[in-house]
Every structure is written in C-alpha cells, then in structure tokens.
C-alpha cells in the first residue's frame, strides 16, 4: 500500500476508469460499466483503484480472456472461459449482472458459477451496481489467504465477510458463485464481517470524495493515458480555440 492520494470525485472515477478500461483494451461501453462498478467498490467501502489494477493489468497483458460461454444446467448457469484463460472481470461482470437481471425478473431462485476470474470483487460490485430486484444475492469466492469471502446484498445493505486489502489488491484468480433469491452462500462466522449501506456510502462519496491508494491510482491513470492521442503539429491546429490568441481582441 502506498500513501493515499487526494480524494477523487465520482465524476473523475467515471472519466478516468472508463478510459482506463479502454486503454487496457475494452470497448467503451464496457469501460463505462467498469467505471460504474468501480464506484460501487467505493460504495462497498473498499478501494476502487486497488480493485481495478489487477483487472486492468490482466486485460492489457492478455493474461485474462474475454471470450466466455454461458451454459444452463437446470437451475445453475455456468459462465465459462471460452479460451481456457482466466476470465476478465471487466468483461464477465456486466455479463453476469445482465443475466441476473433477466433471471430476477422471474423471481425464482437461480445460481451462477463463474470460471476463475481475475478480480472476483469486481463481479460482486457489478452485481451490486445493477440494481437487481431480489430478496437476497450472495456472491462468494475463496482466497488462499483470506479464506472464504462473501458479499451478500439484501434490502439495501451489503454484508462483507473476509475481505481485506490484500485480497483486493492482489487477488488470486478464483471461481465465483452467485446465489439469487435462495439459500446458500451464507457468510461463514468471521470477525471480519461488516455491514454497509451503499446509499450512505454514496452520499459520503459525494460529500467527501473517494480516497484510494496513491500508487494504484497512478496505475489506473497510466492505463487511462493509453487512450490519449499523441499531439502533433497538425492535431494542434484542430483543437478548440486553435489558431487564435486573445490579444487580438
């Protein structure tokens, strides 16, 4: 962990994180979802930059795959890697959230199982950000260091178990299980459980900004910078206000 950077506004998270994903290789629409998901990481009381970096890195360096396949077997939907690589959470998060929204409309119990993904927390945050109408959603995965991690969403609260800074910033690729409207995926007894109201966190973020790890924030900015276009003499004359100085008026 490095020193905390100056707090970022939600608007800045939207701007920089969207384009960081684009800089890492995602299409713009997924970049926007990634930014929204990252805000929800903050609303869950966690560091969005620290969570973002492993996913950005995995996508950019090709360690994470973007091809995925959905299969349904009775009440379980499997989201599988299409090429054997671990799944990119930037790609898989919106697919999972979309599928849960469709299933939630039926009001029935449903389970999703994802192949190993590069940042499980982003899957949980993508689900949280989707505004799914369900009595209960439990997202869980297992970390060699932190044990079983569960993010449980119910009636406007989020209960987080087992998450610590290391599990966020340096996650081990893990399979993720999601339970919608059903039993299972309960939080294990743990002293590392806390309950959060994301709506309150959101108000707090708007009031005070979002604090994040300085080094992680710089890494996000590095990916963001990849989608900036180098300036040339020709491009300079095509910018807003090009060619005019104010001393002529």
């Amino acid at each position: 962990m490095s020193a905390a950077a100056t707090p970022m506004s939600l608007n800045e998270i939207g701007f920089y994180f969207t384009r960081a994903a684009v800089g890492a290789g995602a299409p713009f629409g997924l970049g926007e979802e990634f930014a929204e998901t990252s805000k929800w990481v903050a609303f869950l009381g966690l560091d969005p930059a620290a969570a973002a970096v492993p996913a950005l890195r995995g996508l950019a360096d090709g360690g994470s795959g973007i091809a995925l396949t959905l299969r349904r077997a009775e009440t379980v939907i499997s989201v599988e890697s299409g090429d054997g690589r671990i799944l990119s959470a930037i790609y898989a998060g919106p697919v999972v959230a979309d599928r849960l929204l469709v299933e939630a409309a039926h009001g029935e119990e449903c389970r999703l199982a994802l192949d190993a993904t590069d940042q499980p927390l982003l899957i949980a945050a993508a689900v949280a950000s989707a505004g799914i109408c369900a009595s209960r959603i439990a997202v869980s995965w297992r970390s060699p260091n932190a044990g079983r991690i569960v993010v449980e969403l119910s009636h406007g609260t989020a209960t987080l178990t087992g998450l610590n800074a290391a599990a966020i910033a340096a996650p081990d690729p893990a399979r993720v299980e999601i339970v919608l409207n059903g039993a299972g995926g309960e939080s294990p007894p743990s002293s590392h459980t806390r309950t959060i109201r994301p709506a309150d966190s959101r108000s707090g973020a708007a009031e005070r900004g979002v604090v994040m790890d300085g080094a992680a924030q710089l890494t996000v900015y590095d990916y963001f910078s990849r989608c900036l276009v180098p300036s040339t003499g020709r491009s300079r004359i095509a910018g807003a206000g090009a060619g005019k100085l104010t001393d002529n008026c």
Binding site: L228, V229, G239
Partner: peptide, 23 residues
C-alpha cells in the same frame, strides 16, 4: 473526435490521415 495527450484537449482528426482513431 479524441482527447489529446496535451492537457486532454478535445480535438478532431482525419481518420484517413491521422493516428488515434481507435481511441
């Protein structure tokens, strides 16, 4: 349309003759 690396200034380029259209 793109953001330039120069202070993120918004600019317009020619797709056929200038780099950066992928962004």
């Amino acid at each position: 349309w793109y953001y330039s690396e120069e202070k993120l200034e918004p600019r317009v380029g020619n797709r056929r003759t200038e780099p950066g259209a992928e962004f």
